[in-house]
Design a protein around this nucleic acid. Structure first.
Lengths: 196, 196
DNA sequence: CTATTGTTAGTTAACGTTCACTAACTAAAA
DNA sequence: TTTTAGTTAGTGAACGTTAACTAACAATAG
């Protein structure tokens, strides 16, 4: 188990606090207050504040892997796989809205090299997984190959990120699952080799 | 003139500081140090720190309007117009790299309602301009109309944002103008009605 | 022409508050 | 009985901001 119960509690409280008021208002005091213990008690579970930030990123990495590497993906077409990754993301965000404030927000973790490196590695993992699926789809003549796979990956990831950002900034005012699914259906038309 | 020389200096210094070390390290002390005056002197030019953050966003709004509403856009096809908006953005970012750390980083300005509102209004302006161009292009049978204009807008904006984010996070390691232009050529293939 | 008055943009010193973090102690669980 | 997880009460450093003052300059009045 990567984190104890209390550690997980601290991580989740921190994410919610960042979502609400930004990283500038994430303090040991605000964390401890939100879970109902004293400030020094936090230090029984994390060495320092930086370790909490790193733990948040580890938590993302896990969540992300689960969404990306689910066994559902096996024995599906490339298009079906990307579709599933899209809908899994939307499901995850719908259940954990605070996550959207930080998961595509590389800028938040900019104050330390270790944080930046960790963010970068999460981004790269994402890219490799999607890119691999796209390229396989291109080989199978499922996805158009007059456009480099990396660029299709960028377009797919860019749209996913932007719709989630808009959803959050609207105060979660629209149905992400529905709008997201519509968006994906449009993207399919654009990237599939033969669309009927 | 919206800002005095000194105010502009403070704004630019702040953007560079955010780009370097994140919003957490933007302090009155760091700003004053970077332009070589004392901390209290900052208060001769801005009432308080919040006003500096708001000024940064106003500065963005201006830069953004210039990129979006240039007269070059007149008498051009929709595709040419979006192409120009893309390349103008890349040119602007290339000349002012620190800008990329904040311009698509809504999360940075999350600690106050006034900041969030201003960010939102900039995003909306962007969207309206691009969306208008796309819809005109669809009416003229220039852009495919089997996909709603709003979704094409989202895809275009999402890709632009993501490539800029990647460029920044790579430490500006690739040629944004070239990679961006390649990306746009691929997007054209996807959204044009007839591509030869 | 010069003395007065006001403005602008800066200084040093200090304010109260909050920050991350620690020492010392305690209750309860293992 | 030792370990774990909490407490209270504190630390020095950094935070945004203000007070008090000054040098340099511009406009105006005598």
């Amino acid at each position: 188990m990567e984190f104890t119960k209390r550690q997980a509690e601290i991580i989740k409280a921190s994410i919610i606090l960042i979502a609400k008021k930004g990283i500038q208002n994430l303090t040991i005091k605000s964390i401890s207050k939100s879970i109902g213990i004293s400030e020094p008690a936090i230090y029984r579970h994390f060495e320092n504040k930086m370790d909490i930030l790193l733990a948040i990123l580890s938590y993302f990495k896990n969540t992300n892997s689960i969404v990306l590497e689910t066994s559902e993906l096996k024995n599906k077409t490339a298009i079906e796989q990307i579709g599933l990754i899209y809908s899994n993301h939307f499901k995850e965000f719908n259940e954990n809205r605070a996550l959207t404030s930080v998961i595509f927000s590389e800028e938040i973790f900019q104050n330390d090299q270790r944080l930046t490196d960790k963010v970068l590695s999460i981004m790269k993992t994402n890219n490799i997984v999607i890119s691999q699926i796209i390229k396989t789809g291109q080989k199978n003549n499922e996805i158009r190959n007059d456009i480099p796979g990396e660029q299709i990956t960028m377009i797919i990831m860019g749209a996913l990120r932007l719709i989630v950002t808009k959803w959050r900034m609207s105060g979660f005012a629209f149905d992400l699952k529905k709008e997201g699914s519509d968006l994906w259906n449009s993207m399919k038309k654009m990237i599939m080799k033969t669309y009927k």
